[in-house]
Computed example of a mutant assay.
Amino acid sequence: MTFSIVARCAQSGQLGVAISSSSPAVAARCARARADVGAVSSQNVTNPELGKIMLDRMAAGEGAADAVAAARDGDDHPDYRQLLAIDARGATSVHSGPKALGIWASAEGRDCAAGGNMLAGDGIPAKMVAAFEAADGPFGDRLIAAMKAGLKAGGEAGPVHSAGLLIVDRQSWPYADLRVDWLDEGCPITALSDLWARYRPQADDYVTRALNPGAAPSYGVPGDD
């Protein structure tokens, strides 16, 4: 009931996840990332604990493949899980259990991996990878481009209702953590794209506000003189 991409920006070192689903609040359960460590998605009959396990293993020095294997082998029901991981070096790994729902598939590319279940077709992750690799601009733009390509290729077999974008940079907190937790009508990926377009020009300034408030710009809201 989900399709996603995990990726790294080779220029900035940012890591991130973009994800969408027919289920509500998909990013809250599935998307995890840690600066200078990796980005992961634990999806399809989700066990959110597996995301933490993968990141902890990568933080301890393991690569994406070993981290995914550890999460898979330590879970009581790995046949139901779909796991995606990218480490800080750009290596990727994916596990899709044989009891993943519907049509499921994955693809790995340069600094990215995509996967999904309950898909409209098994070529969708490859389209997402190709779109990420071909896109220009900020890292978030490239993640959104991958999600739009997945949707254009068919996305889920049914309508999607939630989406999320998670990016980490150098700090312990997210550079961006944007979510559309439920839409009855309209497209959550389009809504997420619009939200990112609004947030993107201010993202660096929010970091400045945390690290050096005196250097942070005003946004002209009432009381912010």
Rank of each mutant, 00 (worst) to 15 (best):
F132T: 11
G164C: 08
R110E: 13
K152P: 00
A120V: 00
A134W: 07
K148R: 15
V129G: 05
L143P: 08
A149H: 07
D87W: 02
A71F: 00
A100T: 15
F132S: 09
A91W: 02
A135C: 08
I124R: 07
Y80D: 08
K148H: 14
A130C: 05
D87G: 02
W104V: 12
A114R: 04
P138F: 12
A153N: 08
K99W: 11
A145C: 07
G74K: 00
V160S: 15
A100Q: 05
A131S: 15
E156N: 15
E108N: 13
G115H: 01
K152S: 12
I124P: 05
C112R: 05
D141Q: 13
A69P: 00
G115P: 02
F132K: 09
A130E: 15
M147Y: 06
E133P: 03
M147P: 06
D79Y: 04
D136T: 14
T92R: 04
G155H: 12
G154P: 04
G90L: 07
M128G: 13
I124Q: 09
D79C: 03
A145V: 06
A113P: 01
L151T: 09
D136C: 04
A120P: 00
A100F: 03
F139M: 13
A71V: 00
G121K: 11
M147I: 03
P98D: 14
G116P: 06
A105W: 04
A71S: 14
S106K: 05
E108F: 02
M147E: 10
D76W: 11
E108H: 10
G164K: 10
A145P: 05
S96M: 06
V94C: 13
G140C: 06
D122F: 06
A134L: 05
D79E: 15
A149E: 06
A91H: 14
A120H: 11
N117D: 15
W104H: 14
P125Y: 05
D136P: 02
G74L: 00
L165E: 12
V129L: 10
P98V: 01
G90V: 11
A113R: 00
H161T: 15
P159I: 03
T92Y: 03
R81T: 01
D79L: 09
D73C: 01
A149Q: 07
I86L: 05
P125N: 10
A107L: 13
A91M: 11
P159A: 13
H77L: 14
G115K: 01
P159Q: 10
A105Q: 10
W104K: 14
K99E: 14
L119P: 10
A131H: 07
